[in-house]
């Protein structure tokens, strides 16, 4: 990455390592920086450590060594720091993970009330605005299992946004969707990127990557093979492995 003012970085990851008990070394001396308002797209074959990296960023996985700093807060052994970071970092999962026992509205209200200490009225107002933004305000009183996959994922995005996060993580957000529903979710993600949300996106949607990303990283075996702008990676990759992967996937 080109030299930039360090103050700009909202995420600073330095030399992190993560090995799973089964011996898989998911991340090896992995370092990366993300600037505010930047959309970072991570691509790579399955098992390359992309998802593990995202999950380390908000402390869902614990790193073995190295350091992660998000918005000036170090993600360390302190519980309080981890909670602080999770408040500022929203996450969207491949499998939606909506709360099935709560209505769509309560799904989105929950964290606002419990974590942001908002009143139910305030929370509902925010939630309804977000539901309008993702295009399904009429589903507020519905339970998640009555929604299509695309609608569920849009609710999940609204739920994460309700915390007013500074960073959004997308972990293969469209991989579990039927083809005709991928578009509606990508549309919401594009809007977010257009509004200047800082995003780290793991995806196989190369069209989206090309259109929206400010910076792209190609990962394999827990480390970065190549990084650069989408333009460079797609048209003129330096590494043979990058070329090979992209030719398989495109």
């Amino acid at each position: 990455m080109a030299e930039k003012n360090r103050e700009d970085y909202i995420i600073a990851v330095d030399g992190i390592n993560k090995a799973f008990p089964n011996g898989v070394h998911a991340l090896q001396d992995f370092s990366i920086r993300v600037r505010r308002r930047e959309v970072l797209v991570i691509i790579g074959p399955s098992g390359s450590g992309k998802s593990t990296f995202l999950r380390c960023l908000n402390g869902l996985e614990e790193i073995d060594s190295g350091s992660i700093v998000v918005d000036g807060i170090p993600l360390d052994y302190k519980k309080q720091n981890r909670l602080e970071i999770r408040k500022e970092v929203g996450m969207v999962f491949q499998s939606f993970n909506l709360f099935p026992h709560l209505t769509v509205l309560d799904n989105i209200n929950m964290a606002q009330i419990l974590v942001r200490k908002k009143s139910k009225k305030e929370a509902t107002e925010t939630s309804m605005n977000l539901l309008r933004k993702v295009g399904i305000p009429e589903k507020a009183r519905t339970f998640p299992n009555h929604l299509s996959g695309g609608q569920q994922q849009r609710v999940a995005i609204a739920r994460a946004l309700a915390m007013m996060p500074k960073v959004m993580l997308f972990d293969e957000a469209t991989s579990a969707l039927d083809p005709e529903m991928i578009g509606e979710v990508l549309e919401v993600m594009k809007t977010l990127a257009g509004e200047g949300m800082t995003m780290v996106v793991v995806t196989h949607e190369m069209g989206f990557a090309r259109e929206v990303s400010d910076w792209m990283v190609f990962m394999e075996n827990g480390s970065i093979v190549e990084e650069g702008t989408a333009e460079k990676l797609f048209t003129n990759p330096e590494k043979e492995r990058t070329r090979e992967f992209l030719s398989q996937i495109l």
């Binding site: 999950r55 999770r86 970092v89 974590v115």
Partner: peptide, 17 residues
């Protein structure tokens, strides 16, 4: 499912909540 915990944690809820 583990995903319920993860979704909850990722929203900043404490273990007890």
């Amino acid at each position: 499912p583990k995903g319920q915990w993860e979704a909850s944690y990722s929203l900043g809820l404490s273990g007890w909540d």
